[in-house]
Amino acid sequence: MSIFRDAGHLFRLAGVYLAGTLTFLVIRAAVVPHSFGQYGHYRGAAIAEIAAKPLHYAGHQTCEICHSDIARTKAAGMHAHVNCEACHGPLAKHAADPSIDPGKPDVATLCVRCHAASAARPKSFPQVDAEQHAGGVPCNTCHQPHNPAIAAAGGSK
C-alpha cells in the first residue's frame, strides 16, 4: 500500500515525457522532408529529381528516326558501331527542333582523335600518321565518314 502513496508525481513525470515526445514528433514531421526514409536513409524524392534532368545527347535511336538513309550507309561499313553523336556532338536540341542547325564536324580534329598513330592504341585498331598518310589533304576527300572504306566512297561526300 505504501509504495503507491506518493505515486502522483510519477504520473506528472510521465506526462512531461509524453509532452516531450509529442513535441519531438511534431517538430520532426515539420522539418524532415516528406519522402525521407521512403527507400532508405535519404530523401526519396531526390531520385525523381535526378532522373528529371535534361538530356543533351539524343541517342542514336532518335537520330535514326529521320536519318535512316545515313543509318543504312553506316551499318554497311566500319563505322557501324560508332554512334552519330560520337562525332556530331550533343544534338538533343536539334532532335527536338530540326530547324536548329547541328553544324558540320571538323574532320581536321575529329578523325585524328581516334586514328592518329600511337603505340598506346590497340594494335588491331586502324591508325595512320596523318601527315605521312594524306599530306594535309582533308580525310573526307577520300574517306566518306559514314562508311570510310575508299571503295565505298566513290568520291567525297
Binding site: 532522373a51 528529371a52 534532368k53 535534361p54 538530356l55 545527347y57 541517342g59 563505322h79 558501331h81 560520337a86
Partner: peptide, 23 residues
C-alpha cells in the same frame, strides 16, 4: 557520376557509352 541516371531511366544508355566509338 550518376551513371546518367536521367538517361538510363528513360531507356537510353549513358552519354559516355553512347559516344564510345569502339564499345
Amino acid at each position: 557520376c550518376t551513371l546518367c541516371y536521367h538517361r538510363i531511366t528513360k531507356g537510353l544508355t549513358t552519354a559516355c557509352c553512347e559516344v564510345c566509338p569502339t564499345g
